[in-house]
Amino acid sequence: MTDWGRVRQLSRAMIDVEVEARNRWLVLYPVGFGLLFVAVAAIAATQPEALTGTTLDSLEATLDRYFTSVSGPRIAIALVVVQAPVLIAIFAAVVAVPTARSLAGRRAASGEFENLLASPYTHGEVFAALVVTSFVLALIQTMVLAVIAVGGAWLVLLAAGAQFTLAMGPVVYAPYLVPVSVALWAALVATVIYLAFPETALSGTGTGNALLLVAFLPAFALLGLTTVAPGVSPLLVAVGGFVGVGLLTAVGAAAIGKWFRPVRVL
C-alpha cells in the first residue's frame, strides 16, 4: 500500500537534488521561452500576416468574448488570450518528458534506481516519487514561463488600453491551471516509458518516439480544441483536463502496479 508520507519524503529529497544540480538552468530555459513568447506577441501585433489563416480566424473569433474595446494590437491580444494557456501547456509537456527521462533514465543507467528499490519504500512509492518529482520540476519551470510570458503580455495589453468584460477571470488563471494536468500526464507517461522500456526509449527508435507522442497527446488535443472551438471556456478546459488526466493517471498507476517489472530496468 502506498504511503504518501513516504512518497513526499522521497520526492522532496529528489526535487532538492535536481534543483541544486540544475541550478540556474532550471529557470533560464523557461525565462528564455517566456521572453520568446512576448517577442512573438509583439511580432503578431506588428505583422499579423505572419500567422496562418486558421490561427487568425481562431483569434478573431474569440476577441469579442473578452474585450469591449481595444485600442491596441487586436491580434496580439487575442494571441495572449487564446493561445497562451495552450502554448504554456505544450511547454509543460515538453519540459516534463525530458525531466522524467533524465530522472528515471539516468537513475536506471547509473544503478541508483536499484539502490532506491532497496531503500525503505515500496516499488509503488519509488515510482510515484519519480512521477511527482518530474511533475513538480516541470511545473516550476512552467509557472516561471507563465509568469513571464503572460505577465509581460498583460503589461502590453494594459499599456494598449484594453478594457475587459467580467468574463475575463478564466483568462487570467487559465495559463496557470491548464498546464497542470498536461504536465502530470506527460510526467507519468514519460516515467513509465523510461522505466518500463528504457532501451527502446533511450535509443530513439520509432517505437520510442511513438510512445512519447502519447505523453504529448493532451497538449496537442488542447491545441486542436482551441483552434476548432476558440470560444470554449478555459476554466472548462482546465477542469476537464484535471478530470481526464486524473482518470488516465489512475488507470496508468493501476497498470503499473500490475505489469511493471523492475527487473527490466536493473
Binding site: 522521497l10 529529497a13 537534488v17 541544486e20 547509473s110 539502490n115 532497496a118
Partner: peptide, 27 residues
C-alpha cells in the same frame, strides 16, 4: 544496507551531497 555490483554516484554532485541525499532517503 545494499551495495550493488558497481557503485552508483551522482557525478554532478559532491560526495557529501550524494550522501546527504541518501540520508534523507532513509529518513
Amino acid at each position: 544496507g545494499y551495495l550493488a555490483h558497481g557503485s552508483s554516484l551522482d557525478g554532478r554532485r559532491t560526495v557529501r551531497a550524494n550522501l546527504d541525499f541518501w540520508g534523507r532517503v532513509y529518513g
